[in-house]
Amino acid sequence: NQESVVAAVLIPINTALTVGMMTTRVVSPTGIPAEDIPRLISMQVNQVVPMGTTLMPDMVKGYAP
């Protein structure tokens, strides 16, 4: 099972992602793959992401799977 990126904290809208904001977990449905965390650093979320929420591609500005 592939791990997906999950919010480790509440991430406010338009916040640039940092390593500490993200964790990984096997979830269903799957979100952004864990191995993409290095690509996500400094990208901004386009909505509020509650802690424990799986990051989906459409939540991150400029992210393309």
Rank of each mutant, 00 (worst) to 15 (best):
Q2T: 12
V26C: 05
N46I: 12
N14M: 09
P65V: 10
G52W: 09
T30C: 04
M56W: 05
L55F: 09
V49D: 01
M22A: 02
L17Y: 00
Q2L: 15
I13T: 07
P57K: 15
I32T: 02
L10W: 07
G52R: 05
M59E: 01
T54I: 07
M56D: 04
V60W: 01
V60G: 01
E35V: 06
T23H: 15
M43D: 14
Q44L: 15
D58R: 07
L55H: 00
G62T: 08
M51W: 06
M22F: 13
E3T: 04
T53D: 07
G52E: 10
Q44E: 13
L40M: 06
L17N: 01
N46M: 08
M21T: 05
L55P: 00
P33S: 09
A8Y: 07
K61F: 07
D36M: 15
A7C: 02
P50T: 14
V45F: 01
V6N: 02
T18L: 10
N46W: 06
Y63P: 09
V19P: 12
A64R: 10
T15Q: 07
G62P: 06
G52S: 15
M21H: 11
V45D: 00
M59P: 01
V26E: 15
G20N: 13
A34Y: 05
E35H: 06
P57W: 11
P33K: 05
P38D: 10
L17A: 01
P29G: 04
I13P: 13
P38H: 12
D58L: 08
G31M: 05
K61H: 13
G20D: 05
A16Y: 14
M51C: 04
T30L: 14
R25G: 14
M43A: 12
T24E: 08
V26I: 07
M59S: 04
M56H: 09
M21G: 02
S28T: 11
A64N: 10
G20Q: 11
V48C: 04
V45A: 11
V48P: 14
P57H: 10
A7G: 13
V9W: 05
V27C: 03
M22Q: 01
E3G: 03
V60C: 03
T30M: 15
V9F: 14
T54V: 10
S28G: 05
G52I: 02
L55Y: 00
T30W: 14
S42T: 14
T30N: 09
G31R: 03
Q2W: 04
T15G: 09
L40S: 00
I13A: 09
L10I: 15
M56Q: 10
L10E: 14
K61I: 09
R25F: 09
A7V: 03
V26L: 14
I11E: 00
M43R: 14
V6S: 04
V27D: 15
G20R: 07
M56V: 13
M59G: 01
V6L: 05
P38A: 08
D58H: 10
T15D: 05
A7T: 11
L40D: 00
P33C: 06
Y63L: 13
L10M: 15
M43V: 12
V27N: 06
I11H: 00
P65G: 12
N1R: 02
Y63E: 03
T15N: 14
T53Y: 13
V6Y: 03
V60P: 01
T53R: 06
S4V: 02
G31D: 01
V5N: 00
G52C: 09
R39Y: 13
D58C: 13
D36F: 08
E3A: 05
T54Y: 04
T53L: 05
K61A: 11
D58K: 12
V26P: 08
P12I: 03
V19I: 08
E35W: 05
L55C: 02
T23G: 12
T18V: 08
R39K: 14
I41N: 06
P33Q: 06
I41S: 05
V49T: 08
P12K: 10
L17C: 01
V6T: 13
T15Y: 08
A7D: 00
A7S: 15
N1C: 06
V48L: 12
P29S: 08
P50S: 14
S28A: 14
Q44M: 09
D36G: 07
A16H: 14
A16R: 09
I11W: 00
A34K: 10
G52Q: 10
P33V: 12
I13C: 04
I32D: 00
V19T: 12
Q44A: 14
I32H: 01
M51S: 11
T18I: 14
M21R: 04
P12D: 11
V26M: 07
V27S: 15
V26T: 11
P12V: 04
A64H: 12
